[in-house]
Amino acid sequence: MSDTVPQSPPQLIATFRRTRSVAFQWVVVSVVGFFASAYAFGHVLAAIRGGSLEPIVITILGPTDAVVWLVVSVGIVALVVILHELLHGVFMARYGGDPGYGIGVSYFLLPYAYAETAGTSYTRNQLLVALLAPFVGITAVGLAALVVYPSALLLVPLAANAAGSIGDLWMAGVLLQYPADVRVGALPDAETQGFGIYSTTDGGCSRIPGTQLFSAAISGAVGTLAILSIAVLGMVFLSLAVGSGTVILGDPAGRWFLFRHELRSYGQVHLEIGAPLVVGLTALGGITWALGREGYRALGLE
């Protein structure tokens, strides 16, 4: 006869909830992420072609051509969304789930397609694979396609998939703050969308040291990029409404160049972005936010 030690039930140690605030942040970051991704993939396309991306020349299309491009783009994005969610579902099923698919609107803010399972728990690494598979897989295939067929049209699905992966990357960032032996399952209450993180070891567990500071730095950097993008876009719209449509921030030939937007009389827009300064300001914003949060926490105010 052998004695068995009863195993304690999993202990809830953290939760992630998709609140109205989180949904709003996802909308903003997804829009910024679309254009940032298109810019980054545009540099890849330019390198493949053996040229330079900037200045980016955009020809203003007539109504008929604009409608055709819009319809084609929407069709491509729809196919990417379907493939994105199917990849989520494939890996959920691989790890024991029974995925269902659908379309919803989060807090009347964020329209989204989803793949989800009910009553299934995953290890941290299993859910990370399920979350990141569409971003990694579609990006890899899209970049390979760019090499074979270097067309600007491929930038649309690549950027759309990256923007649609913002929520996945966000949740992956939360999970990476915890050890690999935690399990991830449904929240104790079903009122809010999200997940719970459960410890499977006696005594529970906590965040991996340093990850909270790193997460704050990433959040600050993304927030800084969003603020910069919204401010610059607002300047462009204001200039188009009351002026020439030309906005130049910094010296295009100097080190402190941030942005240039020129509307030419022959129906073209010339864009140029000072990527080094943007990266520097974004990194500075991330570091400042992380240190500020850490100081706030050290003073016991959080």
Rank of each mutant, 00 (worst) to 15 (best):
L238H: 06
A140C: 11
I103K: 12
V27E: 02
T4Y: 11
Y114P: 00
Y122H: 11
I58F: 07
F135S: 13
I76N: 00
T201V: 15
P9C: 04
A253M: 13
L176E: 01
G210E: 02
S121Y: 08
L187C: 02
E191T: 10
I60E: 14
A46L: 01
V74F: 13
A190S: 15
T117P: 05
V141C: 05
Y101F: 15
T15Y: 00
S73K: 08
S229L: 02
A38H: 00
V57W: 07
L61I: 05
V71C: 12
G267E: 03
F24E: 06
G280E: 10
L153K: 06
F24T: 14
T200Q: 10
A231P: 05
V232L: 14
S265V: 13
E262H: 08
V247A: 05
M171E: 03
S244W: 09
V242F: 13
A130F: 01
G267D: 06
A152N: 10
G75N: 11
L176V: 10
A145G: 03
V81W: 08
S73Q: 12
H270S: 12
G173H: 00
M92S: 07
L284S: 15
T15R: 03
G164F: 04
S165D: 05
P157C: 11
T246I: 05
Y112G: 02
S215Q: 04
L143A: 06
G97V: 00
Y178P: 03
M1E: 10
L128V: 09
D98A: 15
G223M: 10
I248G: 01
A226C: 15
I227C: 11
S219L: 14
I58V: 15
L143N: 09
I248C: 03
E262Q: 14
V247P: 10
L109E: 02
F135N: 08
A180W: 03
L154R: 05
G119T: 08
A283S: 12
Q126P: 10
V182E: 00
F34Q: 03
A23W: 00
A40R: 05
L45R: 07
G194S: 02
Q25F: 12
V105W: 05
Y266R: 13
A216G: 12
L301W: 15
G62L: 02
G119L: 04
T64K: 10
R94N: 04
Y122P: 03
G119N: 10
E116R: 14
F16N: 01
Y198K: 09
P209M: 09
F91R: 06
M235W: 13
G100S: 14
S30N: 03
V269H: 04
N161K: 10
L225N: 00
A172T: 01
A163F: 06
L83K: 04
L155V: 09
P63W: 12
G285M: 11
P150G: 08
S73H: 12
L128E: 02
A93K: 14
S165E: 04
V22L: 06
A130W: 06
